[in-house]
Amino acid sequence: MDVDAFRAVHEHEWSRLRRLVARRRLDGAEADELVVLYQRTATHLSALRSAQPEPVLLDELSTLLVRARARLTGSRYTAWRQLAHYATRGLPAALWRLRWWTTGAFAFTTVVAVAAGVWIAGNPEAQASVFGSNEDIRRLVQNDFANYYSEYSSAAFAGRVWTNNAWVAATCIALGIAGLPVLAALAFNAVNVGLQGGLLVDNGRAEVFFGLILPHGILELTAVFVAAGAGLRLFWAWVSPGPRSRSGSLATQGRAMFGVALGLVVVLFVSGVIEGFVTPSGLPTWARIGIGVLAELAFWAYCLLLGRPAAAAGETGDLEERYAGDALPTAA
C-alpha cells in the first residue's frame, strides 16, 4: 500500500473528524456525521494495520479514534485521570512486582559494602593506598566528609543531588537490558560507601557517618535498589520470556520499567530535598534519621497498601491494552 497516496485520499475525512471532535456543541447532522467518520476512520486504521505498518500514521489515527469515541460515548477519560490511575494503580503495582528484585539488589550491595568497610577498617596500608597520606585521611575524617553536605546552598545542593541520582536511576534501567552494567554500578557505589564508612568508623566517627548518610540515604538507596531491580528485570525479560516472544516480553517490561523510572524521579526528588535541607541542618541526629525513616516507611506503605491489591487485580504498570497495541495469541 502507498501510505502517502492513502493519506492524500482520506486526509480530508480525518481533518473533518478532528474538527468535529474539537467542537464544544454539535447539532444533529454533525453528530451523525461524527459517527460516520468515526466508522470510516476505524476502517482506515484496520486497513493500514493489516497492509503495511506505519507507526506515525497508526498512532495519529489511534489517538483520533480514542478522542472521537470519548466524544461519542460522553466519557471524559482525560490525561489527568490516566495520570491518577497510574499513580494509584500502575506504578505501585510495578513497584510491588519488583520487590524481590529490589531485595536482591539490596542484599548484593550490603554484602559488597560491608566487605569493603571491613577490609579498610584497621588496615593502614589499605587506607593509605585508597585515601592518601595521614593528613589527607585526617582532613577527610574531620572535615571534608561533613562539609560535603554544606558546601552549597540547600536548594542548589538538593537540585544537584536530585538530577544526578535521577540520571543514575534512569541509566540503571536503560542499561539493565545487558545485566552486568547494573551489577557493576551497584558494586561501584557499594565499595565507595563501604570504604568511606569503614574509614570513619575506624577513626571513631561512626556517628558522623551514619548521622549524615541515613537521613537521605535510606530513601535514596532504596530508589537505587528499585532502579537496579527494574534493570535486572528488564534483562530477565529477554533471557527468560516465558510463553511470549522475546521482543514481546521485552516490550511489555520495557514500558512498565520506563514508568518506574518516572516514578523514581519523584522519590529521588524527596530524598534530594532531605539531603539538601535535613541532612546538613542543626537538628539532632535522631531527628534527622527519624525523618529519613518516616520517608522510607511512606514509600513502602505506598507500595504495600496500593501496589499489592493492584498487582493482585492484574495491574503490571504496563500501558492499558488500548494503548499498548494488539498482541498475537500465544500457546501456553
Rank of each mutant, 00 (worst) to 15 (best):
P280D: 06
A310C: 10
A313K: 07
E60Q: 12
A230L: 09
P92C: 14
G211C: 11
A170Y: 03
G259A: 08
Q196I: 09
A169L: 08
P181F: 08
P215N: 10
A79E: 10
D326Y: 13
E321V: 14
G132M: 10
T316R: 12
D59A: 12
R244E: 05
G248F: 04
I177F: 13
R138K: 10
R246C: 08
V208S: 02
Y148I: 13
R18L: 03
L305V: 15
L234N: 04
F157E: 03
T252C: 09
W300E: 10
V278P: 03
G325Q: 11
L64C: 00
A332M: 12
G276I: 04
S129K: 12
A332W: 04
L283N: 05
E60C: 08
G254L: 05
E135T: 15
A107T: 14
P215H: 07
W80A: 15
S154E: 06
E54P: 01
R69Q: 05
L221D: 01
A324D: 09
I173T: 06
L304V: 12
R138L: 10
A230K: 05
A51R: 14
G282M: 10
A311G: 01
V201Y: 05
D326W: 13
L45D: 00
A237S: 15
E275A: 08
A187D: 01
W300F: 15
A121L: 03
G179I: 12
R139E: 14
A128H: 15
L250K: 02
W286T: 08
N147R: 15
T102L: 06
R97K: 14
W100F: 05
T279P: 04
F188L: 14
A313Q: 11
G132H: 15
A22C: 10
S271G: 03
R205D: 03
I291N: 01
L34N: 00
G217H: 08
L175Q: 05
L95Q: 11
V208P: 02
L294W: 04
V193G: 06
A116I: 05
